[in-house]
Write a protein that binds this DNA or RNA. Structure first.
Lengths: 351, 351
DNA sequence: CTGAAAGCGCTTACAG
DNA sequence: CTGAAAGCGCTTACAG
């Protein structure tokens, strides 16, 4: 056995094995794929040699040859966000089970970064996308980058922050229904004056949750009062708005569209001497780490990111693997929208 | 202009452009790279055509040709973990600025998954690694997969959970010093009986933080008492251990090696009627989202994940780009270990 | 049973 | 000024 330092070091290629063993590259390739075309003696010799030198085929070369990369691109607005990390986890699980890697890009809620990242990945690096829209993209309603990718034949699965303007597979929760049920649960507990703390309008899910809130009030004999709704642009500078809300209106419950808002409300309420949940019940959307460890712990609507990630990955992979046999003619794509179940986790902030 | 649906759809290649324009592939390639070798007329014609069809070179082909992928692989134990997400963010920033993508794999704190993921990425998919060891890897002290990758000439930068057994670039904080200072700050405030709540031993950072705790006590005239240290394997089943600690010993301060432990301690203390910080001061390692929103808010040691990510990415990219000119002979690699500054964020849980 | 050739999509040194 | 050839690392249909 030749065993110079040099050979031990660098990655070995088929070509080098072929030269070393004095056979052709094809023979080496076939031997390693255990083709019966090759005589047993040669096959075993090649395999032993390859094993000894830790030969592993080069992914890039395989990708080029096969015209698929076996990797999934994920584009999300923000990774420092429990819900999104959770989705990534879900995607990773399924991807790994099916021999796919995952490449992640962050849009930082910026339209330009989203476009840039998509173009970068679309140029051959991945087989398909799983994505959630950036705030700015939702605001501008400019989806040309996504449409282009889809037109090129690359499948896209959108989750959570999706848009009706694009035809593709989607994984969402029923934001409106979930909000409805959350607010309904407050009403069932006898709360009469329920405020809504939400985001600015262009975030799709914010709007849907507001609709659910409104319907819950109206369908259950409460009056809708625009003054009970506040829209927050930035969590770090919302204290005045919230205190004013809590002072003026004798509110007995708040529905917050995310847990950051909820915990902020609780802190302000505490300062103002309000008891939670006695004086003020609080429910939040998005079950994350904060709700679980806040004092009091916060009742939330779960979003089940793992499940969303799992489903998104399954849909994407299925589409990727089925594409192969599909005839090109079959243009009539049938896209599906999967709605993931949500439910309420009751904790201390309601009773 | 030919503009059939078909052409609009699929990605276009040099070959197709060449055929369409009746020139050679080389000419197209050179034109698009703006080579002065090509006559202006041809050059402009090719460029216009390519632009019209949104031609973008195929990353995979470029990677194969250039033998570098312009992508960085990150392997971390867990993504649903504020500190690690933060590091990813830091890496992403620098990577994007330098035209690199980032591919992320999770080890789930499992040795096998770490090995698998590394092997997968090492087969040509990336140019170098940024990684933090899984718990299991630290426990087994089996680093063959990492050594192999390094021997193949692929640079590895480790951060946070590192090991002395491997020679490579590292980005860490001074866990021992930071722990020392945290505990010292408690002593300075007059606390006399300070407990330590930490992880099981094999996690490298856990050990270092314990050392810092011990030294702080001994150097400042307090006695070290083994009974004041508890080791937690699993946060979800530690309540009894902690209550026993708090009951028996008349402890007046706790240093927790992460914020999850800290918030758990606070909740249990509250139940037992202990006032924080009056009866019990609490400091945590790892400044995350929980400490900021807990009630009371928790004093923490910042770990500055963004900065760690930035530095790790810079070191890796620098090494990747310098490798090119370097002569192969230059075997004497000089690895560096960068220590990121930490500091204490004082919040309500201490006074 | 083994190997030469073509090809995945690109670049570049070399001819002409 | 343009193009044919070789090559990155692999696979596979086709000859022999």
């Amino acid at each position: 056995m030749i065993l110079s330092d040099d050979i031990m070091k660098k990655k070995i290629t088929l070509k080098q094995i072929a030269r070393e063993l004095d056979v052709s590259i094809s023979t080496v390739s076939k031997s390693l794929r255990n083709s019966l075309e090759i005589g047993e003696e040669t096959r075993l010799k090649v395999q032993a040699f390859a094993k000894f030198y830790h030969y592993k085929p080069n992914n890039i070369a395989l990708s080029l040859k096969n015209r698929k990369t076996k990797t999934i691109g994920i584009i999300i607005p923000e990774i420092v966000h429990h819900f999104f990390s959770t989705v990534i986890n879900g995607v990773e699980q399924i991807a790994n089970e099916n021999g796919y890697s995952v490449i992640i890009c962050l849009s930082d809620d910026s339209f330009d970064k989203e476009v840039l990242n998509m173009e970068m990945l679309a140029n051959g690096s991945i087989d398909g996308f799983i994505m959630s829209l950036s705030k700015e993209t939702q605001q501008k309603k400019d989806f040309h980058h996504i449409i282009e990718v889809i037109n090129q034949g690359m499948p896209v699965v959108m989750f959570d922050r999706v848009t009706d303007d694009i035809q593709c597979d989607k994984v969402i929760i029923d934001d409106e229904l979930a909000a409805y049920e959350a607010v309904k649960s407050l009403i069932d507990k006898g709360r009469k004056k329920i405020a809504l703390v939400t985001t600015v309008d262009y975030v799709s899910v914010g709007k849907l949750r507001t609709d659910g809130y409104t319907k819950a009030l109206l369908n259950n004999g409460l009056t809708f009062d625009d003054n009970l709704i506040i829209k927050i642009e930035n969590v770090d500078s919302c204290e005045i708005k919230i205190s004013k809300l809590l002072e003026d209106k004798a509110i007995d419950a708040v529905f917050a569209v995310n847990e950051l808002f909820a915990v902020t409300i609780i802190k302000i309420a505490n300062k103002m001497g309000l008891k939670i949940p006695e004086d003020l019940a609080v429910i939040a959307f998005t079950d994350g780490i904060i709700s679980k460890y806040s004092t009091p712990t916060i009742t939330t609507v779960t979003q089940n990111g793992i499940e969303m990630g799992n489903v998104a990955a399954k849909i994407l992979i299925e589409r990727l693997e089925s594409e192969e046999e599909e005839l090109e003619e079959n243009q009539e794509e049938i896209y599906k929208t999967v709605v993931i179940e949500t439910h309420l986790i009751e904790r201390e902030s309601t009773n």
